[in-house]
Amino acid sequence: MAVLVLAEHDNKSLKAATLNTIAAAIKLSGDVDVLVAGEGCAEVAARVAALQGVKRVLVVDNAAYGDQAAEPLAKLVVSLAANYSHLLGPSSSYGKNTMPRVAALLDVAQISDIVGVVSEDTFVRPIYAGNALATVVSSDAKKVITVRSTAFDPVADGASAAVENAAAADAAKKSDLVGRELTKSERPELGAAKVVVSGGRGLGSGESFKSIMEPLADKLGAAIGASRAAVDAGFVSNDCQVGQTGKIVAPQLYIAVGMSGAIQHLAGMKDSKVIVAINKDPDAPIFQVADYGLVADLFEAVPQLTASL
């Protein structure tokens, strides 16, 4: 049976996590449809249609879905659910907000944050902040799933799927969007970056976080991450937080600067290909997971590293 993926986008551009979610869907069925619900989102639909493995793009262009509120969106997904065995969304703040509503309305469990597909009804997902992996079997007729993007390689371009319009569902809004404060950045998206440079409390202040980490990120074309301690101390904004309750990342290279390596942080980055830790405390737990550890004062080592790149 066919599988439906809920695309994440901002009406203009497709969010990278959608590519990984489609990759997970392909493991379940050769028949993958993608729902693009938004307002003025034709560009996004065209982008999705070019992705390998997508059979059909369903577009619902309606003001009700413009700000991606969970309530109307969940009803829309439910209205389309009859044709699908599995409904997938990314395990991002968008997917986590919407998909449980879909599951509840369909009276099925949600399988959260999967990192592996064993079979049509069996999935692997992390529990206890990634300290254990559970293999779960769903007995529900339909499976509602969120996908951890770092566990699936993104699909590539190179196809041209059919784009069809679909009907809006009960589109009554239940909340008003007052505003958004989005961090503007020329850097790559944290969840999809090939290199992440991440700072902790050791940086001492927002000013040094900026003056030490940003030049390094610029040199490497990296996204900037942070530990919870650095975010709570106000060095950087919350959307930089990597960890159990923040973003989960798995870049090719993760450079951890001035952070101890709390278990909740490790949960968010331990699947990175290469981990570098720079910390002056040789006993910091971060060194237990780092491929390369440099015991040094970050205020000397990082500028030196930046200058040598």
């Binding site: 509840a104 309305l105 949600q110 959260s112 159990q244």
Partner: peptide, 15 residues
């Protein structure tokens, strides 16, 4: 922090 599901509030709101 045990099952890390992140579902109950949203499910209740939907129901």
């Amino acid at each position: 922090i045990d099952d890390d599901s992140n579902q109950t509030g949203q499910m209740l709101a939907a129901l």
